[in-house]
Simulated scan of single mutants.
Amino acid sequence: MNIAVLSGKGGTGKTTVSTNLALALKANYIDCDVEEPNGFLFLKPEIKEIESVKVEYPFIDDDKCTSCGECVNVCNFNALAKVKEDIILFEKLCHGCGACEIVCKKGALKYKKREIGNIEKGKMQGINCSRGILNISEPMAVPVINNLLKGLVKGVNLIDCPPGTSCNVVSSLKYADGAILVTEPTEFGLHDLKMAVELVKMFNIPFGIVINKDNGSENIVKKYCKKENIELIGSIPYSKDIAKIYSKGELIYNNIEYKNIFDELSGKMKEVLRWN
């Protein structure tokens, strides 16, 4: 079963929830937040394997190119431009669709490959851990995420999604059987939570809410869940001690005082997400 952990915004505690739940469930951990993959800071797995992620991009043979501009006209991603009598390539905008190669009557366009990131795999306490790392200055994270999720193994997989509701998140939800939405009990948290809720509903993915930094009061998120009949999986208390633990890069689950929080979350999650 593949469980996506996501949030409508960054900084809600998504990685805190997913890394600690991975221990509670003895689940595989997959960090799809490839622009800032920080789950390994907590899990600290021993890296066993590193794979390069490459994408295709067009290469222009100047000896064959007549600068007709047909490739520019067919490109929907503005990766090619005609400037006077030259064809200019912006390789990082290319999506590798192949349309430019098809329309080029002179055969001046061929495809090469370049590296945009890599995938690291390792183990920690018997848990399979993997993450994608997008190279600095690369604009497109989706190819790294797609390659990362192709390697899903059997069992329970916790997918730590990128923040927000962009195409990166959509790609991370591709294989999800259920979702945990992590939020904070603030106006900003609720605003972006609503967008995340609409996203998982669009894909008909069963989901529940986890509130981070909960002070125990009847806050706006709890009221929203009641009004919309959304399952509340549980909450993580607003605690200075907990903040100290994760600020040191340590797992909350390893602290005997707070271990039960994630044991209870994992139990309730199985009920909410139609566990099988």
Rank of each mutant, 00 (worst) to 15 (best):
S137N: 15
S217H: 00
K9N: 12
K174I: 14
N128F: 09
S130N: 01
G39Q: 04
V103A: 08
G216E: 11
N212E: 12
Q125R: 09
K227Q: 15
F40G: 06
G96Y: 13
L181S: 02
K248W: 01
L25Q: 04
A179M: 07
L134N: 11
D241P: 00
C71A: 12
I116E: 00
S171E: 14
N168H: 11
L134Q: 09
N78I: 06
K154R: 08
C97P: 12
T186K: 03
E35C: 05
I242G: 04
Y111N: 03
L265E: 09
G234R: 10
N168I: 06
Y246F: 15
S217G: 03
G96P: 14
N20A: 13
L265F: 02
C225Y: 10
L134R: 12
E56W: 00
S235C: 13
L109H: 08
K106T: 12
V142Q: 05
P163R: 10
N146K: 15
C71Y: 08
G10V: 07
L134D: 11
N276W: 02
Y175Q: 03
M124E: 02
Y29G: 04
V170K: 14
K270S: 10
G234Q: 13
Y57E: 10
I233A: 09
L193W: 00
K48D: 01
S172Y: 06
K248L: 13
I3H: 03
R114M: 12
P45G: 03
K14I: 07
G249T: 02
L158S: 11
H191C: 02
I256L: 07
L251K: 09
I159C: 13
C167D: 13
V170L: 15
C161H: 00
L21N: 10
V142I: 15
F188Q: 05
H191D: 06
V272W: 01
L193A: 03
L173A: 10
K112A: 08
T165S: 07
L251R: 09
K154W: 01
E198C: 09
E91M: 11
